[in-house]
Write a protein that binds this DNA or RNA. Sequence first.
DNA 1: GCAAGGTC
Length: 818
Amino acid sequence: MSSGGRPIRVLNVAEKPSVAKAVAGILSQGGGMRVREGRSRFNKIFEFGYTIRGQQCQMLFTSVTGHLMELDFDDRYRKWHSCDPIQLYRAPVVKYVPEDKMDIKRTLEEESRNCQWLVLWLDCDREGENIAFEVVEVCTQANRHLNVWRARFSALIDRDIRESVEALVRPNQLFADAVDVRQEIDLRIGASFTRFQTMLLRDAFHLDFARDNRNVVLSYGPCQFPTLGFIVERYWEIQSHEPEEFWTINCTHNSDEGIATFNWMRGHMFDYTCAVIIYEMCIQEPAATVSVTEVAWNSSFTTNAAVKLSQTVPNYNHEWYWGSACSKVAKVRQEEKLKYPPHPLTTIELEKRASRYFRISSEQTMKVAEDLYQAGFISYPRTETDCFSQRTDLRAIVQEQQGHPVWGSYAQRLLDPGEGLWRNPSGGGHDDKAHPPIHPTKFSSGESRWSQDHHRLYELVVRHFLACVSKPAVGAETTVEVDIASELFSASGRVILEKNYLDVYRFESWGGSMIPTYTFGQQFAATTLTLDSGVTRPPTLLSEADLLNSMDKAGIGTDATMHDHIKKLLDRCYATKDSNTRFSPTNLGEALVMGYDDMGYELWKPYLRAMMESDMKLVSTGAKRKAEVLETCLEQMKACFLDARSNKAKLFEAMEVFFERSGRSGADEQQAGGDITRRCGVCQESDMVLRRKPDGNFMVGCLGFPQCRNVVWLPGSLAEAAVTTNTCSICTPGPVFMIQFKFRRLEIPHNYNVDHLARAGPTTTSSSNQQRNPRQIACTHCMQYGHSSNVCPSQVSHSSMARSQGVNQQNGKISYLS
DNA sequence: GCAAGGTC
């Protein structure tokens, strides 16, 4: 690979300090590793010697902390009032290293200069590949002779790491491109819609939840809105639910051994007459017949409530019948059933289970998990992997837990071959190729500085892990099917034979209920046979676990960000969470979704994100080019944005359902609506927009107000003024949009045309710096000061119409200038 | 003041 006896100096960069430390530790096995400080106090530099394919290397190992760079608009477009939001679809964007990452950048630059190789140890996912290219950009700027390599590893395990060093590859540009696409689309869509809807609605309504409207931001994001959409959609389902009455026949039988409750196998019947007829048949026909129907197995851990939107609850007892109906046992089935332990723990499962078992929010779960990870008690908490690598020493992890006062004895039983409790964990088939499932990495019987949540989450991680390597619980199930007048009823009971993993996984249970013994062909008289009624109930509000589930299925967010999106909805006052972790939309959240829904857009549905995700896949495989995907996606979104803007009345109507109009809606709404004529020639930063003041007069003012006070007052004789799509062919910098004027007939000479096309002219820098009477009137043709339209320099050259119709107002008088 | 994605 390289010649000579001098060792190659290799700069290795990992995505986070912990990985740098771990990999350096593995490769330097046997010692000789030195640690020194970099410029960033979190990102140390590890140094040691290593031999790669026979080549002596001096290894320097450091890290970044996630993305090194950020994407944002060019300075000129960063301020909210700097431009019409529509321009954000074309405005130049820049990738830059933010201030808080500059020290990491400097370390990379300094170390790069003294190295020949750069080896990238970033996580093996798309984001990791993108970060790799950020690192490459910084490092090769400092040393363009660097030989750049990528290490591919799937776990921080000796063999994996050593093998990946021997099989270095080049970084994959396509993976990084896919992330570039996502970043740019998210930024442009997010910023444009956020600015638009904030400026449109914030001041137009009394937002009762906010102390000060000025601080309210009505954000839009391709992840936060679909998440809100899930909440609103469920809320609407509940509101639109119409209870429906149903009927069902229930049967019980008391014997010496106990009571059995038989359920009608038809379930619920919505036709009363039909139900009554069958019921009559049952009580009049004592003879039972034998059926050959297979017994359906009802999974005890998939409850109806979780599967069906409408739950049914009997609430009315119609009639009693005592005694003589004869039931015959048509079938008795006894089977062994297994209840399997969960798959190894992923981030989303951790969040869902913490919410279900302890009602800890996903945000708090991630905060505490990060803490436990930092302190070395659990493995990396952001993972999608739900199967362990075959090389993981699972028994060693169990061994560590043997001393625990509560679950230590279970760990001992697991390791005892005589117990036969061990089972190699099954996986769910997900592997992010970057991190193992969440598991304990250090024993603790509780630390003094731990909060209750720390205790609970550590316990959950440990018990979950122990459960994963345990045998499933074993139960004996009996299902008895009886036949009354050809109607089938069934009852089942379960006895748990071996608890196995349930012994340690106290969060799950497996309900056992006994029923009396029945034998095939046995006849008995039902103790009660009743026709009961009930009503269908609406589904419940979404719980945090439900919400995470919906997001996961629809591909909204990542394991590391889902909790952020949920929190954002609460922070933005789009949704609330009750004590039972159930989410409801607020008025604001509902209004926004309603507004977009009324427009007929699915901006609040997950499809947009799903489309982006599939486009990203195509980019990452090379099936589509980055520029092509960006172009088409942004073009579509831009069209959608324009459409939404022209349909802004729908948003207003939806908001009016919940909020009172404030009467204020001035400059901001104007901008959201966008009547931009040209770029401001004074500050050169913001746009000039056409506005009508409360006194009825028109003006063209800079959006940079009050920082920039550039303004052009239009003649008071105007009845109407509107920015057109015609652009001036002379004025620079373009585009300069022409304004259509309509004068008041009575205020201008009778032979003057009321319609007039002009442009808001270039206010030169020199004239704008002078103190100016704000009421000074500009030339109506080019909107410049210092001359009247009859001597307007631009008139002679191009606009014959304007020339013949020039008009000026001076000293309150209209004078016609031909 | 805006997105979502990394991460401390």
